[in-house]
Simulated assay, not measured.
Amino acid sequence: MRGIMGRSLKVSPGCTEQVKSALGRNGFPSQKALAEELDIGLSTVKKFLTGQPVDYSYFLEISERLGYEWRNIVSCLTSKLHWVYNTTVILNSK
């Protein structure tokens, strides 16, 4: 499912500090450890934690692993977030 939509999401500026602190709370001693567990690039994890845009599928995956409901921490880069979410639900149900 990664990369299908080409949409990016980022952590809301008001949530970046709490998201960064979630690493330790969830047993990750470093950003690299999280990246390795999820089998994604370290640069993607760093972007996520600093509020930079990442592919929506990575955003959902990292959010879930850190214990967050993605909709509670997202800052939408596109006005079509609702469309992305609904399409993701449809793709996942097949």
Score class of each variant (00 low, 15 high):
7 R>P: 00
82 H>T: 11
16 T>L: 11
55 D>Y: 01
12 S>Q: 11
47 K>S: 14
32 K>S: 07
14 G>W: 09
70 W>I: 01
36 E>K: 13
72 N>E: 15
71 R>A: 07
37 E>K: 15
26 N>K: 10
54 V>S: 02
56 Y>S: 15
56 Y>G: 09
80 K>I: 05
33 A>S: 15
84 V>L: 11
58 Y>S: 15
69 E>K: 12
42 L>K: 14
45 V>R: 01
31 Q>V: 10
85 Y>D: 14
75 S>R: 04
94 K>A: 09
25 R>N: 14
26 N>D: 02
9 L>Y: 14
24 G>Y: 07
53 P>V: 01
85 Y>P: 00
64 E>D: 08
84 V>T: 10
70 W>T: 01
25 R>Y: 06
43 S>R: 04
37 E>C: 06
85 Y>K: 09
31 Q>F: 07
14 G>E: 15
38 L>S: 13
94 K>T: 07
50 T>K: 11
3 G>H: 08
15 C>W: 13
22 A>F: 03
87 T>C: 05
87 T>A: 12
16 T>I: 15
82 H>S: 13
29 P>G: 14
6 G>Q: 11
52 Q>I: 00
90 I>Y: 07
40 I>D: 01
67 G>F: 12
20 K>E: 07
19 V>H: 04
39 D>V: 12
25 R>S: 15
41 G>I: 00
67 G>W: 15
46 K>F: 01
14 G>T: 09
48 F>T: 06
90 I>R: 06
62 I>M: 10
81 L>K: 03
64 E>N: 12
34 L>A: 09
59 F>Q: 01
38 L>G: 12
46 K>L: 00
19 V>L: 07
32 K>L: 07
49 L>S: 05
85 Y>E: 14
58 Y>R: 03
75 S>T: 00
40 I>G: 01
73 I>V: 13
79 S>L: 13
92 N>I: 04
38 L>P: 07
74 V>R: 12
13 P>G: 06
41 G>Q: 04
7 R>V: 12
4 I>H: 13
18 Q>H: 06
40 I>E: 04
35 A>N: 10
75 S>Y: 07
15 C>G: 00
87 T>W: 02
24 G>C: 02
80 K>A: 11
74 V>L: 03
24 G>D: 06
19 V>A: 08
29 P>K: 14
50 T>L: 06
53 P>R: 01
67 G>P: 08
21 S>C: 10
5 M>Y: 13
82 H>N: 12
16 T>F: 04
66 L>N: 06
87 T>E: 13
63 S>V: 05
3 G>R: 12
42 L>C: 01
75 S>L: 02
24 G>T: 09
21 S>F: 03
79 S>Q: 13
36 E>W: 01
12 S>H: 15
86 N>D: 13
6 G>D: 02
65 R>M: 05
18 Q>M: 13
12 S>Y: 12
71 R>E: 11
65 R>T: 10
72 N>L: 14
23 L>R: 09
31 Q>W: 02
11 V>R: 09
23 L>F: 14
55 D>Q: 12
19 V>E: 02
52 Q>Y: 03
10 K>I: 08
79 S>R: 11
